[in-house]
Computed example of a mutant assay.
Amino acid sequence: MAVFVHLTDLHLRPPGVLTLGRIDTDRYVVQAIDAINARHPDIDAVIVSGDITDLGEDEAYNRAAMLLSRFPVPVIVVPGNHDQTAALREAFRAFPGLGEETVPGKACHAHRVAGVTLVALDTSIDQLATNGHHGELGAAQLEWLDATLSQAGPALIAMHHPPFGVGIGFMDKIGLADARGFAKVLARHENVLRIVCGHVHRTIVSEVGGVPAIAIPGVAHQVVMALDDATPAALVMEPPAYGVHMVDNGRAISHIGYVESYGTPVLFDNPVPA
């Protein structure tokens, strides 16, 4: 069995600086790494699906690289809409896939880990420079994905923007622009077991071209569950979380774990029958 831990939306600022002036994302990231290392000693890799920083500062990327280096397994990183690809690539040059440029302008890469091909896609479009936050894969990256999947075997795709509508209006406005093109590529391959992503700071499950897809909460703040037009766009301090994706015998299973502890477990009075 292959086991992958999944973190997303770290939104780090330089050391000592609070995100949005009020959220100590550094503390949240440290807590998440400590909890995962304590609870999950036998994982095969860690996936970090974008928004490593909040404003793309070099100091924030350097801090992120230092913290994520505390995992004893490969860490697969892709950028999000709050990232700057060039700065991320420089800070994470020693991490898998980020010392090379497979597709010009995109930080996409693929790795065979424990019998599974982890495909990391770059949906960022240098939003910090353009003040836009939607995602786009682009024709060249879709061609690369098509070629990669054709020889990948069992595969798991990681990306920042969900390739599906999430039902939260203000997030769907900054979703993946070429989701249909992505779905067309998936339709040509039957070996993709799961698509995992972030961006929306919530647990949201859907499917793309018949492939199960899951977005997970961030390790710090979350996005309000605004399922109607009356609920304003907002961030909420709901529990920080992470994902665990297990692949066994050609099937993928995904779990959501909470970083914080909620007291001593209450044991069953009698063993659960087999």
Rank of each mutant, 00 (worst) to 15 (best):
D42F: 01
A114F: 08
D9I: 05
V48Y: 09
A110R: 01
Q127L: 07
R112W: 12
W144A: 02
H82M: 03
D122R: 07
R89G: 00
G50A: 00
R13C: 01
V75Q: 07
I36L: 15
I23V: 02
P74Y: 10
A91P: 10
E101P: 14
L142I: 03
V48M: 07
R63K: 14
I23C: 00
G115Y: 07
P72M: 00
E90N: 13
V30R: 10
A35Y: 00
W144C: 10
T25W: 04
M66V: 06
G80C: 09
H82D: 08
H6R: 05
D83Y: 03
A60K: 06
N62C: 02
A129S: 12
A139E: 14
L18A: 10
T85E: 09
L128H: 14
A45L: 02
L118I: 15
L20S: 07
L10T: 03
E136P: 01
N81L: 05
V17I: 12
A86T: 12
L68R: 06
A45W: 04
P74T: 03
N62F: 02
L128M: 14
I23D: 00
Q84I: 12
L67E: 10
G115D: 03
R112M: 11
I36S: 14
I52S: 12
D26M: 08
T25I: 12
A129T: 05
R70K: 06
H111M: 11
D34C: 02
A120S: 15
N37K: 15
H11A: 04
H133P: 01
A45Q: 03
V48L: 14
T130E: 10
L142T: 00
S124K: 05
E136W: 04
Y61L: 14
L55S: 13
T25D: 13
V116G: 05
T123D: 05
A114P: 10
A38D: 12
H111C: 10
D42K: 13
A140P: 09
E101Y: 11
P15F: 14
Q141F: 04
A60T: 05
Y28D: 05
Q84Y: 02
Q84T: 03
I52T: 14
V77I: 15
V103W: 13
L7D: 15
A65N: 06
G21H: 04
V119K: 01
A114N: 04
G50M: 04
H6N: 03
V103D: 12
A139H: 06
Q31T: 07
L118N: 06
L7C: 10
T130I: 11
V113I: 15
G132Q: 14
L18F: 07
G50W: 04
A114T: 09
G99A: 14
V78M: 12
R39G: 13
L118V: 09
N62P: 00
A35V: 14
I33N: 05
N37P: 04
G97D: 15
R22Y: 00
G97F: 08
H109F: 08
L7Y: 15
E143L: 02
P72V: 01
P14D: 08
A86H: 08
A45N: 08
T102V: 15
H40M: 11
N37C: 13
Q84R: 10
G132D: 07
H133L: 03
V119I: 12
Q141L: 08
A110Y: 01
T85N: 02
H133S: 10
A64M: 07
D83P: 02
E101C: 08
R112V: 08
G138V: 04
R22T: 11
R22F: 00
N62Y: 08
D54I: 01
G16P: 01
S49W: 03
T53M: 02
E101M: 13
T19H: 06
